[in-house]
Nucleic acid binder design. Structure first.
Lengths: 151, 151
DNA sequence: GCAAATTTAATGTACCTACATCAAATACCT
DNA sequence: AGGTATTTGATGTAGGTACATTAAATTTGC
């Protein structure tokens, strides 16, 4: 649907303001759809993202600092997201022997199985999440334009 | 900065997955910048957005349902955002006489003055928020591509 | 070698999001 | 009119975001 109709606003101050709202609105739209997919699995989106980073490190551990470095949202509280994953026994936390300030965080077998299941069911496939409507050239253009905004 | 560097991920499964992450990351980037601008004024971004909708209605009142209809995030809790604005005396809430289930929400003079100040200082000008890097044609392309994703 | 500075993570607080539930007012239907 | 359904908003709860502060371990500088 056109942004105008989604938020019932007929006109915008500028094409730039419309693009701004459109990016924010589309991001919310995408995140809500993804969150709905993970909800039945008892996972939130930030929890899933942390879990995926941990799988990328596996079998090496990650620290909280490493998670933050790789997360989309740098100011999100990785400590507390790890808390939730630990409660669910999807990750473990141990004091790093080499540096007792740091904490070694590792994905468990149960965590790996859960991600495996999500992969097998194709739940994160971008082609099923709105991106099938765009050609590869359009996607590249989109990526270039977004990078320019943050340049 | 390129997305690859922002989140330290060298490659992506597909251009679609990269675009997905790029939209979410860029939206976060934009919102964080805007939030930082409003913080010294004691306003959060959702509070500002609600206030702007109320100014659009002024001097007519809005209901909670109308706010939700026009908000970017439909699931956000407009009731509680209005609570905060009411505490700050930027809006008033009165039971709607014509329909006692509904609540008439109005922006106050103080609310109008605050928005006036924000306008005067150009704090929401998209040209100062990353969009000056794109031509009007590029912005139109961007809007078209984003609309396609949600089609 | 020891005091000061820095790093690393956890925690406190305020606010927001997402969703379920509740209560009151109104509309509907016979 | 009277009972049921719907509308409208508020509220409860779990989790996340943003930022400041704290505590412990380590590094640095003299």
């Amino acid at each position: 649907m056109r942004l105008e109709d989604e938020i019932k606003q007929a006109t915008f101050q500028s094409e730039g303001q419309k693009a701004h709202l459109n990016i924010v609105f589309t991001a919310g739209w995408l995140q809500q759809r993804q969150a709905a997919v993970f909800r039945p699995l008892g996972l939130t989106l930030p929890q899933f993202n942390v879990l995926r980073i941990l799988r990328g490190q596996h079998p090496k551990p990650a620290t909280v600092a490493l998670l933050i470095d790789r997360m989309l949202d740098k100011t999100s509280n990785a400590s507390r997201i790890v808390d939730k994953l630990e409660e669910k026994r999807l990750v473990t936390r141990t004091v790093c022997p080499a540096n007792r300030r740091a904490v070694d965080i590792r994905i468990t077998e149960a965590g790996l199985r859960l991600l495996q299941q999500i992969d097998a069911e194709g739940l994160v496939d971008p082609l099923r999440n709105g991106f099938e409507a765009l050609t590869d050239a359009e996607l590249k253009t989109l990526n270039t334009l977004l990078d320019k905004i943050r340049a």
